Simulated scan of single mutants.
Amino acid sequence: MSKHPADARGSLIATSFFGIGLMAAIDEIVFHQILAWHHFFDRSTQTVGLISDGLLHSAELLMLAAGFYLFVQLSSRRAVSRLHGWAGLFLGAGGFQLFDGIVDHKILRLHQVRYVDNLLLYDLAWNAFGALLLAIGFMIWRTARSSPASLQGGR
């Protein structure tokens, strides 16, 4: 184990960015492109839908790059708190998923998970998965806060 102090907050932030970008990438690749269930903005033309997907993809890449950059900076100083890092990854991914399911789908009505007669099953599954990721992240974060091992940095 390294004697360098871990940067718990920095580890949490870096991997939260990465988690947001990762979940946005999974959403876009699987649901927007492979399954073609929707575009980020479905309330206009096909062209506007494709442009909105491109903007989502750009934001996702920025989040991945920012998270990766911050994580590399922590790694070079041997200041990564592994538990805080894992917590951030799950909190970021779950936060994105739940934000998308509640704000984008229901409040702003930018798009639905899937356009079917009964949306309830899709909405429940989508939001439950986001809540599960958040719960896992929160449990890891609580463990990290009380763990002496999280005070040590390393690679």
Rank of each mutant, 00 (worst) to 15 (best):
M1Q: 10
M1P: 14
S2L: 11
H4C: 11
A6P: 02
G10D: 04
L12C: 03
I13V: 14
A14Y: 09
T15D: 02
S16M: 07
F17S: 10
F18R: 02
L22Y: 03
L22P: 01
M23R: 05
A24T: 04
D27K: 06
E28R: 12
E28F: 09
I29W: 12
H32D: 05
W37R: 07
W37N: 08
H38W: 05
F40W: 09
D42Y: 10
D42C: 15
T47Q: 14
T47H: 11
V48G: 03
S52Q: 12
S52I: 05
D53T: 10
D53Y: 06
D53R: 07
L55N: 07
L55I: 15
L56C: 08
L56A: 08
S58V: 09
L62E: 01
M63D: 07
L64H: 07
L64I: 11
A66L: 13
G67K: 02
G67C: 04
G67Q: 04
F68Y: 07
Y69G: 01
L70T: 06
F71Q: 00
V72L: 13
S76I: 08
R77H: 12
A79Q: 05
A79C: 01
V80R: 02
V80M: 13
V80L: 15
S81K: 00
R82F: 13
L83P: 08
G85T: 01
A87R: 02
G88E: 00
G92S: 03
G92Q: 04
A93E: 08
G94I: 02
G95V: 06
Q97A: 14
F99K: 02
V103K: 03
I107S: 11
R109M: 09
H111L: 03
V113K: 04
R114Y: 03
R114S: 09
R114K: 14
L121G: 05
L121F: 13
D123K: 06
W126S: 10
W126D: 02
W126R: 02
A128D: 11
G130Q: 00
I136C: 02
F138D: 06
M139L: 15
W141A: 13
W141F: 13
R145W: 00
S147G: 08
S147H: 03
A149K: 15
L151D: 13
Q152W: 12
G153A: 13
R155L: 13
R155A: 12
